[in-house]
Design a protein around this nucleic acid. Structure first.
Lengths: 307, 307
DNA sequence: CCTCTCGCATAAGGTGTCCTTATGCATGCT
DNA sequence: AGCATGCATAAGGACACCTTATGCGAGAGG
């Protein structure tokens, strides 16, 4: 069944409510002539007059009166649905993030975001796929990469730096770790981790015989971290992810030397949606979190870089 | 709250149902590009993506999935309403008619029409107003007049002829009515009726002293007819309206001479709606009724005259 | 593994729908 | 009677929308 032109139905709905073409026209922001035109169109389509043209007003015919309530109801339904959708679209922030970042950085801090934006519901999606907002139902994403994606705004969060860490007890067991080479006296949690090779080179220790693919490793540090905290060995971890443990003394980072493989974490979101309140809110909050951290160390971090 | 362009919503509804822009386009009789365009439009309006563009198909996003059922429901409602309206518009025949014609001719015969068209409901509206389909909720009308109305089809039904009638008993009381002048010996039910003057002139009886406005009288013959049948006097009535009584002998019409004032009953309906089944049905039935009558008297009546 | 095909996105261009302006007509109010 | 109101109609124009053409990405099939 073919619906008549919907524009005409909409006009009819308004006209029926007002009992006046002129008023309906005003509501719809068009001229009285346009309303008259659309109604006539609809009447032809239906095959019956819908209005009686009375002197100072128009009245629904029997047919029109029968049609009108159902149409009104349908429109109310639509209006409500769209309003609800808009609201829910504004009220739910979906974040797609690399699992490591979620576990080690985002989740522990999300509470403060929720507190600051009580009306925003957060949906976390952990995934390591390439971020593609066309096929992923997310508002913002956290990914690694070079920070150049077309149509996407990217803020650099921090580099995936890494440094050796171990439990204080383990360090004490060899009388303390004084030089990078001392680390080799201890068990290494994951000797295959490519970061080790990079770090030792950076630290000036040559040929410790550690092997591993030179590919980046944004994978899960979670298990490795647990093992290190438990004192099972030395691990190579990203310091920002273990700030709390370093502060509390559960872990120690013997050297300030950090390795990095020139990969960064980025906050990304579609350029077209950069002005959505929820996107702005998250961006501002996240960058704010970083500044708090940085303020103690470096003078100022450039907050954003757009692609 | 402004609704988004309804055309876009319609496209969305179809696309959501099909899970495919291409199929939706086919259903709507447009190209895939147009669907893509409209969806994008709607997404911009809503402020959130509605579909995820997956390799071989599109999928609703969370937002889209929330929106879709309500929209579908609204459309179903509309479709049903329009279908019902069409049906009821086709199934109800509203006749506006002069009261006299209704009482004396139409109502007694309507049964045969209903029998022939059981699916049609008939709504009778008696009114003497000028017929104006723009402000009267009627499909067909029966009116008197010259038979010239712009935009209106008019079929001549019969003239408003009139002739004296009386009960057989009353006629017998003066030994029968032989000449028109004999009528003057009897009581006249409504001497002020202008028809009398016309009829007597036609009959060649001069100056009976009856007075009355020379305006046509399509008013109610009903009361006058009752009085005549009851034997209270002679009345001047329209023969076609009393065929049954004449046949049964309740009334007699002493003379074949009929007066007329050149006014006719017409069946009228808007030219634009001449092809509606219900209009056709009524027209054909009514003209058929007349032919049955005529066939015994005149050779053939030209059935229609269109304005 | 390479190619073919399917489905959607995008750009450019035309056109048809729909809206506006202008006017007329009928009616009711003062 | 004259004015105001509200709808209908005609003519004209603009913009939204659709079409055609093309590209791209990813499965599917050989």
């Amino acid at each position: 069944m073919n619906l008549p032109p919907l524009a005409a139905i909409r006009v009819f709905e308004a006209a029926a409510r007002h009992g006046s073409f002129t008023n309906a026209a005003e509501e719809l922001g068009m001229t009285q002539a346009a309303v008259s035109y659309q109604i006539k169109l609809l009447e032809e389509r239906i095959g019956a007059p819908l209005f009686l043209r009375r002197p100072r007003q128009v009245t629904l015919t029997e047919v029109g009166a029968r049609l009108s309530p159902a149409i009104s109801e349908a429109f109310d339904l639509m209006r409500a649905a769209i309003a609800a959708t808009r609201e829910s679209a504004d009220g739910i922030l979906t974040i797609t993030t690399i699992p490591t970042f979620a576990a080690n950085w985002l989740v522990p801090r999300l509470g403060s975001f929720q507190l600051a934006h009580p009306s925003l519901a957060v949906r976390l999606q952990a995934s390591r796929d390439i971020v593609d907002f066309a096929r992923q139902d997310a508002d913002v994403g956290i990914r690694s990469g070079a920070g150049r994606w077309p149509g996407v705004v990217a803020h650099k969060i921090f580099g995936a730096d890494f440094a050796p860490m171990l439990s204080p007890e383990l360090a004490a067991s060899i009388g303390g770790v004084k030089t990078p080479a001392d680390l080799l006296k201890l068990p290494i949690v994951d000797p295959g981790d490519p970061w080790w090779k990079v770090w030792f080179r950076t630290a000036g220790v040559s040929g410790p015989g550690l092997r591993g693919d030179p590919r980046s490793r944004f994978g899960d540090q979670h298990l490795e971290g647990k093992a290190v905290i438990a004192g099972q060995g030395v691990g190579i971890l990203t310091p920002v992810f273990y700030e709390a443990e370093l502060r509390s003394g559960q872990l120690i980072q013997p050297f300030d030397i950090v390795g990095n493989d020139n990969h960064f974490y980025w906050l990304v979101y579609p350029e077209a949606r950069r002005n959505l309140p929820k996107v702005k809110a998250f961006r501002d909050w996240l960058l704010g979190q970083l500044e708090q951290k940085d303020s103690g160390r470096s003078p100022k971090a450039p907050p954003a870089a757009t692609a």
